[in-house]
């Protein structure tokens, strides 16, 4: 049976948004992390994890947001990470965000970041 990602021929698709934009830093990081996880899952498993996203949720997510869900799902299924530790890490990030202010973060971002070269 055709699933939500299997888009070929869907009849209600509208105009194509041809706006060009560079990948965001977090998207590049995500791609790198996924490729670094090749020992834990292969590309077919990754696509299956995207396919398994609940259809209504799938429609509301951006392309790379679907990747985050697939990555998390697979790492948990494979026993690499647990949902609890990911939730816990999110809490740590959020607690620190609340204590800091933007200008410092902008500097850190550049230090930790990479230049957005042409794609």
């Amino acid at each position: 049976m055709s699933k939500v990602h299997d888009r070929g021929g869907w009849s209600d698709a509208g105009f194509i948004d041809k706006t060009e934009h560079d990948l965001a830093m977090w998207e590049k990081n995500l791609m790198a992390v996924c490729s670094a996880c090749a020992a834990h899952f292969n590309v077919d498993e990754f696509r299956r994890a995207i396919e398994d996203i609940e259809p209504d949720t799938y429609e509301t997510l951006s392309y790379f947001e679907r990747w985050v869900i697939a990555l998390e799902t697979l790492l948990i299924q494979k026993g690499v990470l647990t949902l609890e530790e990911i939730d816990q890490k999110m809490k740590v990030f959020e607690a620190r965000t609340n204590r800091q202010h933007l200008p410092d973060l902008a500097v850190s971002h550049r230090q930790g970041g990479h230049n957005d070269s042409q794609i």
Partner: peptide, 24 residues
């Protein structure tokens, strides 16, 4: 990497990705 994740402009999923990366 943690500092990138603390950028309040980042979406929920971007933070989630950063959390996974930091754990790995």
């Amino acid at each position: 990497h943690s500092l990138i994740a603390e950028d309040p402009e980042l979406s929920f999923y971007a933070k989630r990705a950063a959390a996974i990366e930091a754990l790995l």
